[in-house]
Amino acid sequence: MNLSGEFIAFFVLSVMAIGGAVFMINMQRVMHMALALAFTFFSIAGIYLLLNAPFLAVIQVLIYTGAISILMLFGIMLTKHRYEEKSAVARWQGVIGFIGVACFLGVLMWTIYRTPLLSGQGNPKDFGIHQLGAAVFKEYAIPFEVASILLLVALVGAVILAKREENECS
């Protein structure tokens, strides 16, 4: 394996992403966790750049690192968080969960490395923002519209769900 710039970039970014995720799992305070996760999302945006998807990278930063993280911070602030001792049931569940996830990861990795994936190499010029915009608004116009309706519904739904109920106010 030649030590190309792409490889170094991928290596650094993936270490950042995985490190952020691991920190997120192991942090004690919820706010730190949110920040670690934002860091991970940011690293993933960098990987998108490596994969010739600059628009997605920007979107990732905007939506995940920006919007969703902020939304989550609001969620954290709106709910109270106590740091109790973990109960025996939770510890037992943690051990079993770790084993299960490890097995799952093992199977996944084994599959990825054993399967002969026929891979091509796309021309970076085909992945420009122009082409993406054309594809979305021509080929995928109807799904795009449906997605916008979905966003609207989700917005209304979220407002209704989070709103205090009438009888509770009184």
Binding site: M72, F127, F144, A158
Partner: peptide, 30 residues
């Protein structure tokens, strides 16, 4: 980028997924 048939479809799908993830996050928090 690296699939058997490289193309923009994957990126378009990711775009939609991000959209849905945003909606999901909003509803989840609610």
């Amino acid at each position: 980028k690296f699939g058997l048939f490289p193309g923009l479809t994957g990126q378009v799908f990711t775009l939609f997924t991000i959209t849905i993830a945003a909606a999901e996050a909003a509803v989840g928090i609610a």
